[in-house]
Design a protein around this nucleic acid. Structure first.
Lengths: 232, 232
DNA sequence: TTTCTTCTTTGCGCTAGCGCAATTTATCAC
DNA sequence: GTGATAAATTGCGCTAGCGCAAAGAAGAAA
């Protein structure tokens, strides 16, 4: 049920923490199973917990008043999400929702407790700062792409990024398999479902990828790198 | 020359730090005067210093390979910038450049030293985390706008945001005065100079703003709020 | 197997915003 | 004041990508 200390060490943020800290952290946590399409938390909820995904896959999405949405991050096992509330001692609200992409399990850690742990163990604070700086760099890069690059380049970049994040497990000699719908890719890249469908069809004709229902297999990653950095 | 301890307390990140820490921080700092259009640091430089702006105004810009650029943040006095390198003990590179918008002065603090201070004083670490979470929330919101909203709405949001950041000093009964060129606004909103010019001309006809060379005076802020949240 | 649902594809028309080019306006240096 | 430089404006044509609609696939359920 609860992850072991060994498992918790797989979490980057916790890497340098003491056993005692990790143990007490478990005491202040809940295991929550969330089924596909349900939410760990909703945008605007009070950020009382931060999460470690222990199995499954999730996405962090932000909606505007019309209900249109963008995907900010994809979460894989042993990643931390929903942590903004652990920083301020004021009441904070989640700025985005966390939705399970498949049946998932997360460890919910009390934000207030985690804040105390960070105050007493600087390793935890540095772990969190490293998480934040890495995320800032990614979102800044994506922001720049959204402002300056065409859809084709943004999608190529997004697939490369996803391939890197999804990790080795999905990489075989037959290519790198990504499990995302056209709609998912659209929300990740600031494009529409239709444009993504047309683009992937085109790439499939050129044998850069091979695609199916909610599946994209990257056959020639280097081609995507080229497209991503093609000017104008 | 060097800012006083009282001045340094105006920096959010330093608010809770001890006098001794602030004093030693000054010892490990340099005062750097940068003239308009010159750079505090360039994208790709080794992030050996983090900065506190003590006077003037600066922008953080990220460029792509074609030299097109987006503006990520505007920096006002007593704000910290270029701090990513203080987090990791690996060598880090600035992911963006910091360019002075007018003749400016900054206090350059050694990243490695600041990292040690954060490790010994959790208040500093929390100050930094608060800075990062606030920035993350802003950039996420702008990312969402860029993906989902039209130029008109993004510009309205940007002006509102700038008005809030520029602060009270520029707010009179005659409106809120912002000192930015059309090009600046374009780089802040992911639009072109031409589109911004046309849009501002239109708003001026409607008496929402009044504008001049490198100047925008917001006459009816509420109109902008309405535009920013107008659907489709 | 058949039916339902959900995802995907593709044709088609449309428009927001780009970007060139030429002009006008404001500011600065001398 | 005069000329030089940089910023801003505006007309015009163009196209990337949107978004509707309708049809086609691929699973899931019955």
């Amino acid at each position: 049920m609860y992850p072991s200390l060994t498992d918790l060490r797989r979490v980057n943020v916790f890497q340098q923490a003491s056993d005692a800290d990790l143990e007490s952290l478990r005491q202040h946590s809940l295991v929550r199973a969330i089924e596909e399409k349900s939410f760990f938390f909703l945008q605007g909820d009070e950020a009382a917990y931060l999460y470690v995904l222990t199995s499954g896959r999730a996405k962090i999405v932000q909606s505007n008043v019309n209900g249109q949405q963008v995907t900010l991050r994809i979460i894989y096992p042993w990643q931390v999400f929903g942590a903004l509330g652990a920083v301020s001692n004021q009441v904070a609200l989640y700025p985005a929702s966390a939705q399970a992409l498949e049946n998932s399990v997360g460890l919910a850690i009390e934000s207030a407790f985690f804040r105390k742990l960070m105050a007493s163990d600087s390793h935890l604070a540095f772990g969190m700062m490293n998480l934040m700086t890495a995320y800032i760099q990614e979102i800044q890069e994506r922001y720049r792409e959204l402002a300056l690059e065409r859809v084709e380049q943004r999608v190529a970049s997004a697939l490369i990024r996803l391939a890197g994040q999804a990790g080795v497990k999905s990489e075989t000699e037959a290519g790198i398999e990504l499990v995302f719908s056209r709609q998912d890719v659209a929300e990740l890249t600031g494009a529409t479902l239709y444009t993504i469908s047309r683009l992937l069809s085109d790439w499939e004709r050129k044998s850069i990828i091979q695609s199916g229902r909610e599946r994209i297999r990257i056959l020639r990653p280097h081609e995507l790198v080229t497209i991503a950095s093609t000017s104008a």
